[in-house]
Amino acid sequence: MKDKIAEKFLMVVAFSAILTLALISFFIFQQGLPLIFKAGLHNIFSTHWAPTRGHFGILSMIVGSIMVTAGALIIGVSFGLACTIFLSEFSSGTIQKTLKPIIELLAGIPSVVYGFMGIVILVPFVRTHFGGPGFSVLTASIILGIMILPTIVSISYDSLRAVPKTYREGSFALGATKWQTVVMLLIPAARSGIIAGIILGMGRAIGETMAVIMIAGNALKIPHSILDSVRTLTSTIALELGYATGDHRAALFACGSFLFIIIVILNIIAIRFKGKE
């Protein structure tokens, strides 16, 4: 009897999580889609964003989100992979035991703190050494790159570790060096896990809001260089929702709809790669 009650209770709780997701997606599209149809795709995919005057162009924000995410991936993946390979293959047990928790700790730092560090340290640094306003694609990419490190490191570390020991031993027995083993054997073997980690990191980068608002400058123009300011989809929603009414508000939900679609696609890809393992 008690078993039955517990089972039913757990089922209800489990379904409530799914229900939340269903409600969120329903709400976003219900609010955003009417405007997309009303304004027309050519209006939505323009670069002119003046929602209080009937211009709902979100192209520059989509481009902004993609640029910042790509920048974050370049930094996050190169540092993340180097770190993972070092941790998993080239370091002793004690180094692993200290370094890995520290990297995972990075995930626990609130994004507003990253943003604050960005404003205080990185923005003036970029401004004085590279030029431009300092609030730029480059600054946002560096901060986001650091923010996605723990995701990339912990998932790709697990998949590198999951490669059977016999593979390594076989490779050494054939006379391969450690580096050759890593590049030619381990990385290809752990490929799907590494890619899943990268895609999950990408999801975090594209969805990040607070830190990006603080350091990207939020100018609406499509950036011409990595030193120009940039506006992402998420920052637009967070910046303007407090004031928005009517069509302006609907336009922000339209931003949300596009973001939702992008993130769902990323997650489907990630799940596919994970499933292959």
């Binding site: 520059s60 306003p133 939020n218 100018a219 123009k221 506006r231 910046l239």
Partner: peptide, 23 residues
């Protein structure tokens, strides 16, 4: 113009101007 930086409060505009010599 769309090349202006955008901030969402008096405080954050003030913060940027206080730290940006050409703002």
């Amino acid at each position: 113009s769309d090349r202006c930086l955008v901030q969402d409060s008096n405080g954050s505009v003030r913060e940027i101007i206080a730290t940006t010599p050409n703002g």
